[in-house]
Structures are given as structure tokens and as C-alpha cells.
Computed example of a mutant assay.
Amino acid sequence: MTNEELWVQYKEYNSKEAKDALIIEYVELVKIIAGRLYTSYNAHVEFDDLLSYGIIGLIDALEKFDHKKNIKFETYANIRIRGAIIDQIRHMDWIPRSTRQKYKRIEEAVARLQKKFGNDFTDEQIADELGLTLEAFSKLLGEATTYSVVSLEEKIEDSLNFDIASNVVDIQPEDRFVENEMKKILSQTIEQLPEKEMRVMQLYYYSELTYKEIAEILEISESRVSQIHTKAISKLKIALNDLY
């Protein structure tokens, strides 16, 4: 039975067998998304837990997807699966308050330097702004890197709190404007980053490489990739904050 036939059997005839077959068909997508988020969260959660949360998102996507609309299920499911995993991680609240506060300090320092220098400033300047040695700042970046990823994910999820994929025709003009503006700002901000930060963001988000793979390409350590990523994320989050 083809994929299209499975959708018809499930949606129009409520076939449990077709639904089970669709879950099996798309479970690999859940594994890919869960694996990527597992890397982002620095192994603070179990991969199997992320996979379970993602399966919940996949089932939700299957139930709510309109197979008659002109949109790929993979696009819709990606949003639902990521959203389900991130929601569960939020509820776990496993990131210490001290880590959140440390990242907030970095973000505030970056915001102040952006007003002075745009997006082009050094680690040394951020360390000076924080009143830290370069070594202490590098350690701080390492501690805050996990929360930086979570923070950006949450900001994007909150910004797109309308159903992008299932209601393409029904999206209100103001919601469409926010979506387009957010994409434009993210794209522009990434393009304005210093070359190494831009390269890390492109390799991580567009090429979907791991820190280890990026480190090999750029010939730097994984910890350095993590630090560069954290700095770049703080700039993106500040740009998104300015939209609201």
C-alpha cells in the first residue's frame, strides 16, 4: 500500500492498521529530531526519553494533519515533534537557576556591546564587560551553553504559538507577518555575524552537523564550537526580542 493510500485509509476509514503503518513509516523522523536535540541538551536527558516525547508528538501530528491540504507531512510533523519534546523538557526544569542567571549575564553583556560595536566584538571584550578574565569567561560560556540552546528554542516556539502547518490557509495576517519577520531577522542576524560564528550557525542549523563534525571542519575543539555557538545564539535571541 502506498503512502497516499495509507493516509486515505487512516483519515477516511479510520483504519488502525493504516495509522500503525504511518507511525512506523515516520518513526525515523522522530529519531533524527530526538538525536539532534539530545546533542543540543548536552546529554542532560536520556535519548530514550526524548524519543518517547517525540513519538507523542508524531501521534499528535498524525491525528491533526489534514492530508488533503497542499503541505508535506514531514514539514508539519517536524514542528509537532520538536514542540512535544521541548514542552516536556520545559516541564522537567532540569536547568539550575544559577545556569539561567549566568546565561542572562552573558546575554546582557552581549546586548550592551552590540549597541557599541554591532555584531563584531571579541571574547576579550565580553570578558571585560563582565569583569572576568578570558579563562573565567570561557568557563562561563561552557556552563551556559546548554541553556542557550534551550532559551533560543523556547523563544522561537513562543513566537510561533499559532499552528503554522495545519492551518496554512487560516493563518491571520498578523501571525503571518510575525512568522515572516522572525525568519527575516534570524537570516539577517546570521549573515551579519563574524565569519566563524556565521559558519558555526550555518553548519549546525542548515547542514545539521554535530559539534564534533563542525570542530573537524573548522579545525578547532568541540568546546570552542560550543562557546562560539553560545555567543551567536545570544545575538539571535536579542534580535528576536527586538521584534516584540
Rank of each mutant, 00 (worst) to 15 (best):
M1E: 07
N3M: 11
N3Y: 08
E5F: 01
L6Q: 15
V8G: 05
Q9S: 14
Q9G: 14
E12I: 14
S15I: 02
K16F: 02
K19H: 06
D20E: 15
I23M: 11
I24G: 10
V27S: 13
L29E: 08
I32V: 15
I32T: 15
I33M: 03
I33L: 10
A34I: 14
A34P: 08
R36N: 14
L37A: 03
S40N: 14
V45M: 02
F47R: 13
L51Y: 12
L51R: 14
L51I: 14
Y53M: 11
I56M: 03
I56P: 01
G57T: 11
G57I: 06
L62G: 07
L62N: 07
D66F: 06
I71F: 03
K72I: 06
K72V: 10
T75L: 01
T75M: 02
Y76G: 02
I79V: 10
R80Y: 09
I81C: 02
G83F: 01
G83H: 07
H91A: 12
M92D: 15
I95R: 04
T99N: 01
T99F: 00
T99M: 05
K102L: 15
K102S: 15
K102T: 15
Y103G: 07
R105I: 02
V110G: 04
A111T: 12
Q114L: 06
Q114M: 13
K115V: 09
F117G: 13
I126Q: 01
I126T: 11
I126M: 05
E129H: 07
L130Q: 01
T133E: 02
T133Q: 00
L134N: 08
L134C: 01
E135H: 13
E135T: 15
S138V: 05
L141A: 05
A144Q: 05
T146W: 00
V150Y: 01
V150I: 10
S159P: 04
D163A: 04
I164R: 13
S166C: 03
V169E: 15
Q172T: 13
P173E: 02
P173C: 03
D175V: 12
K183S: 11
I185A: 07
Q188E: 13
Q188C: 04
Q188T: 12
I190N: 04
I190Q: 09
P194E: 02
E195H: 10
E197M: 03
E197F: 00
M198E: 06
M198L: 03
M198T: 11
Q202D: 11
L203G: 04
Y205Q: 08
E208G: 11
L209Q: 04
K212C: 10
E213F: 04
I214W: 03
L218S: 04
E219Q: 12
E219G: 01
E219S: 12
I220S: 07
S221I: 02
S223Q: 15
V225W: 00
H229G: 01
H229E: 08
T230R: 00
K231R: 13
A232E: 03
L236S: 08
A239I: 11
L240D: 00
L240T: 10
D242I: 14
